[in-house]
Design a binder for these strands. Sequence first.
DNA 1: ATAATTTTGTTGACAAGGAAACAAAATTAT
DNA 2: ATAATTTTGTTTCCTTGTCAACAAAATTAT
Lengths: 157, 157
Amino acid sequence: MNKEEQLIMGFRDLYNKMVWLNKSKMEDSLKGYKSSEVHCIEYIGKNVDSNVTKLAESFYMTSGAISKIAKKLIEKGIIESYQKPDNKKEIYFRLTEQGKVIYKIHDELHKEFQERDKAVFEQITEEQFDSMLSFVEKYSRHLDAEIKKLAVDIKPE
Amino acid sequence: MNKEEQLIMGFRDLYNKMVWLNKSKMEDSLKGYKSSEVHCIEYIGKNVDSNVTKLAESFYMTSGAISKIAKKLIEKGIIESYQKPDNKKEIYFRLTEQGKVIYKIHDELHKEFQERDKAVFEQITEEQFDSMLSFVEKYSRHLDAEIKKLAVDIKPE
DNA sequence: ATAATTTTGTTGACAAGGAAACAAAATTAT
DNA sequence: ATAATTTTGTTTCCTTGTCAACAAAATTAT
């Protein structure tokens, strides 16, 4: 196995572990809320004028799935939808007061995770940090371009 | 947003993109096989005496889910199960001839992905590479310890 | 202006995966 | 030796997410 493979598989394993662990902690603290719901709450809390489309793109999920999660969150009174006077098509979301409470709890939890993992980050230098950040960004942009290519493949102009 | 958060979110976004893109390509080339099935084929091809438990642990999935995928792969004739004379409990899997063909195709595809992303890896130095690998490993071990803690929390000795 | 296309969101049918209950074998404790 | 516990795997029921069809609004082309 070469280094590229090793790194990618290391990433995958690391990511899986993090998701699994944080999900456990999350659903333990925020009982009654699934991690996908909390993700949406987080996104809506951070981004004004969130809608189904933006959420779906951000999470690499279908809009159908987001539509259902949003519906559930509205029923629970966590988020509410609103529209703009000049656009009858797009439907935006914002947190309700109750939603802001959940958001806050989620945020605390995030800080807890950071505290938990502080020891790992303290071991790396500022240079290593920056070099990783730049790598991740480069790779991400590279994949954006590849995803774009795929879209053209599917429906050529 | 501090650098730690930025890096974690960068990871997440990168990982999501990669999964989404490679899944698309995969299910395009290996029509009739879901990416979870291909993952299992890959693991079984690489690890002798794979079983439900090991697959589940590796993918952070439940053994129930793996059991179902394995069943489907056996029905399709991609893998076969076997046991050892001194153990009537554990059930192992190996690829059939047909399974090896799928494995081979999957492997080619992997090389294709590497080729596709070569440009990104060429831009980083050997030192950057090693430093990222060591970071990923350290973080991974750190999370292993945390996961262990969680297990003790759930069922104290 | 209006016709064609694209964007946005929702729904219902279906498939994949998780949780829990279970059985059988293996291991550990007494 | 045998009783209690743990490991391994399967199945059933349920939740979540995808896919495809659809409707309505917005945008673009003619």
